Amino acid sequence: MLVTQQPVFRNFWYPVVPLDHLSPTKPFAFELLQEAIVIWLDEAGQPAAAPDRCCHRSAALSLGTVKDGCITCAYHGWQFDREGTCQKVPQLQDKTMIPKTYRIPSYHCTERYGYVWVCLGEPLQPIPEIPEASDAGHRVIHEFYEPWNCAGLRVMENELDLAHPTFVHTTTFGSEEHPIPDSLAVEETDYGLKIRATLGVVNPELQQKNLQMDEGQTVRHLDMDWFMPFTCCLRIHYPNGLTHMVVNTMTPIQDGRSQMVQFCVRNDTEAQTAAADAIAFDRQVTLEDKTILETTDDDVPLNAKYEQHMMTDKPGLLIRRRIAALLKEHNETEQTRHCD
């Protein structure tokens, strides 16, 4: 499946940039589902989004500035508000003379979890709900915001694949003694999937520091959610009561390129575990995954016959079936390079 060739994916929310990356005077350019968009802060300091193209002579609006909450085109100075309405044309003395046709499209745009989320179409589902992120007993640690050269669907399957840690995460937590999970239960939900599992792991020195424990071996109790189409939330529960949550969204840029947005949520304090240490360990884990995933085919086949499978692939196969059903529901056929 080629994600940019399936219009239905325009109807989901994606995080596109950390809110603190935005300037009150300078717009921000991004590519979402192969479409150039521009993001800026309106007069209330809230993010707004539109195609990165002026309706006058098609110049990139991201080259311009932001003034009084309006994005100003660098070519002729036309200004547009968050709804796309032209508020100023310097070449016209009277604002009432601006034709109603002087406007640009606008996109759904809001802030959540410290990121700007954008939906190019009409949202089919809300932004994934992560209750712990606003709970006083937890803290949010922003980790990674970077492009990966792979399909988001591959990463989602990898997040829920409990057979790969033994072989991929050899320097972090993978245990040779536990090549498969001790238990695995999968439940379909209205938003995607819920997975509960237990997995034996090892704990190198840095991880022991993060977990506030001196054990080299332990069991991870996993409570995982997949939110259609490309967000996973992994709640990792440890025997000492610590919960380390990893929230990961792969925002589709192009078919073979995604923006990896990841933050973690923990029920401890900075005094117990420094955020920098938690990030450092998760950095090792993500780089081990990235090395493998960037070698995979970005055209992920929804039809199971094109790849071979084993019992631990059940979550991934259910993801593919749910996406295939989504395409069918919206009268779309799978766009793919695979041939019968």
Rank of each mutant, 00 (worst) to 15 (best):
A276P: 00
T251P: 03
P105E: 11
C70V: 08
H244C: 02
Q34N: 13
G137W: 02
E288D: 13
Q87T: 15
Y107E: 10
P131D: 09
M310G: 12
A280Y: 00
Y102C: 15
P239Q: 10
A275Q: 11
C264G: 15
E187Y: 04
F281C: 01
Y107G: 07
D255Q: 02
E288R: 05
N240P: 06
N203T: 12
T101A: 14
T251Y: 01
V17R: 08
E187K: 11
R235C: 02
R220S: 08
C109P: 07
D190M: 02
R112E: 14
Y145H: 14
K290Q: 15
P27G: 05
A36T: 03
E288I: 00
F9Q: 00
L317I: 12
L242I: 08
P24T: 09
D42L: 06
Q5T: 00
G241W: 02
Q5N: 12
T171P: 01
E157I: 02
I323T: 10
A136I: 04
N331E: 13
Y145Q: 00
C109R: 07
I141H: 05
S58I: 04
Q308V: 15
H237G: 00
R320Y: 03
A44G: 10
I127Q: 10
R337W: 05
G192V: 05
E188F: 01
V201A: 09
Q207G: 02
P128Y: 03
W78R: 13
G174W: 00
R283T: 13
D255Y: 03
A185E: 15
D52R: 03
C109F: 06
M97I: 09
G152H: 04
A304I: 09
G69A: 04
V261S: 03
L318N: 07
P239G: 02
H21M: 11
H178V: 02
K26I: 12
M97H: 11
Y238F: 14
D223E: 14
D68E: 14
I127E: 12
D313E: 11
A197S: 15
G64S: 06
D94R: 12
E146Q: 13
G256N: 12
A271L: 09
D289G: 05
E215D: 14
N203C: 15
M1H: 07
P47I: 08
R320A: 07
A49D: 09
E270P: 04
D297T: 06
K209R: 13
E43W: 05
T72S: 11
I141F: 06
G121R: 07
M245E: 06
Y145L: 00
V201C: 07
H21A: 14
K26Y: 01
E43S: 14
A29M: 04
R139S: 06
P179A: 10
D225H: 12
P7E: 00
A280L: 10
E122T: 13
G174S: 01
